[in-house]
Simulated scan of single mutants.
Amino acid sequence: MDFNKEKFKNVLHYIIHKCGHKSNVGKTVLYKLMYFSDFNFFELYEKSLTNESYKKLPRGPAPMHFDVAIEELTNEGKINVKTKNLPSERIMYNYSSLEEPKIDFGDDELSVIDDVLDNLSDMNANQISEYSHGDMPWRATDDYKIIDYGFVFYRNPEYIKRNYDQSD
């Protein structure tokens, strides 16, 4: 799978446009919204939305090209990033969209992304990290390794998006 940087940037910009204004949506939440958009799409259609690679980190899956995409979107004048210092030397990143995102998605892609946003974008970083820890692709991957998309076919029922025919 070849990484589709423009598609990744467009999906990320769309997600920031739709929910970057929420006070709970920082870097960790965006990581997970991108992950579930890609992995849910893969489960449903057996192909990746962006072909991004996600690494298993202690707080959940993280997209490998996130920082590059954010930097490019910022330099292109499409988004703005603000930082705020938090206790324990942590930083909160807030993202805002400065223009309408380019929506070059099919209806099926948009449906999956919007479903992820509807169901998960109100979670804070701790909640969505904990939720991601229950997903089989993250659970089945060794720490700091790339998560295999194929593990979506072994998800627990609460994560399954595909309607599997029970008569098979």
Rank of each mutant, 00 (worst) to 15 (best):
F105R: 11
V112R: 10
I103H: 02
L117P: 02
E72A: 06
E100T: 13
N94T: 14
I79P: 02
S111Y: 09
K78I: 02
E89N: 09
I70V: 14
I79S: 03
I70E: 00
I113L: 04
K102Y: 14
D114E: 12
D67P: 04
L86T: 02
D118T: 13
Y93A: 02
S96T: 08
L86C: 03
D115I: 03
L117M: 12
E72C: 02
D118S: 15
E99D: 12
D114P: 06
L117I: 15
E100H: 15
I103D: 02
M92I: 00
E71D: 14
V68A: 14
D104Q: 04
D104T: 08
S111Q: 11
Y93K: 12
E100L: 15
T83M: 07
Y95N: 01
F105Y: 03
K78L: 07
M92E: 08
V112K: 12
E99H: 01
S96Q: 07
K82A: 10
I113A: 06
N94W: 05
V112I: 10
E72F: 01
L98G: 00
E72K: 10
L117G: 05
S96G: 04
T83H: 04
G77P: 00
S88L: 10
V112L: 07
S96C: 06
E72T: 15
I113R: 12
L110G: 11
K82Q: 05
L73R: 14
L86E: 08
T83F: 09
I70H: 06
E89Q: 09
K102T: 15
S97F: 09
P101W: 02
E99K: 09
S111H: 12
P101N: 10
E109D: 02
D107M: 03
G106R: 13
K102S: 10
E89D: 13
E72L: 07
I79C: 01
T83Q: 09
E76A: 06
M92K: 11
K82M: 05
I113H: 09
V68S: 11
Y95S: 06
G106K: 15
E76W: 00
S111F: 08
P101S: 06
F105G: 07
S96R: 10
D118G: 07
K78D: 00
D115G: 07
N85F: 11
Y95G: 04
D118Q: 15
R90V: 00
A69S: 14
D107V: 14
E72Q: 12
R90M: 12
L98I: 03
G106A: 04
I113V: 14
E72R: 08
D114W: 01
L110F: 10
Y95W: 08
P101Y: 05
I70M: 05
S96P: 02
P87F: 02
E72Y: 05
E71K: 14
P101A: 05
E109H: 14
N85A: 13
I103Q: 11
D114C: 05
D67T: 13
R90T: 01
R90S: 03
I103M: 13
I91V: 14
K82C: 01
N85T: 05
K102F: 10
I113W: 05
K82S: 08
T74A: 09
L73C: 05
S97Q: 11
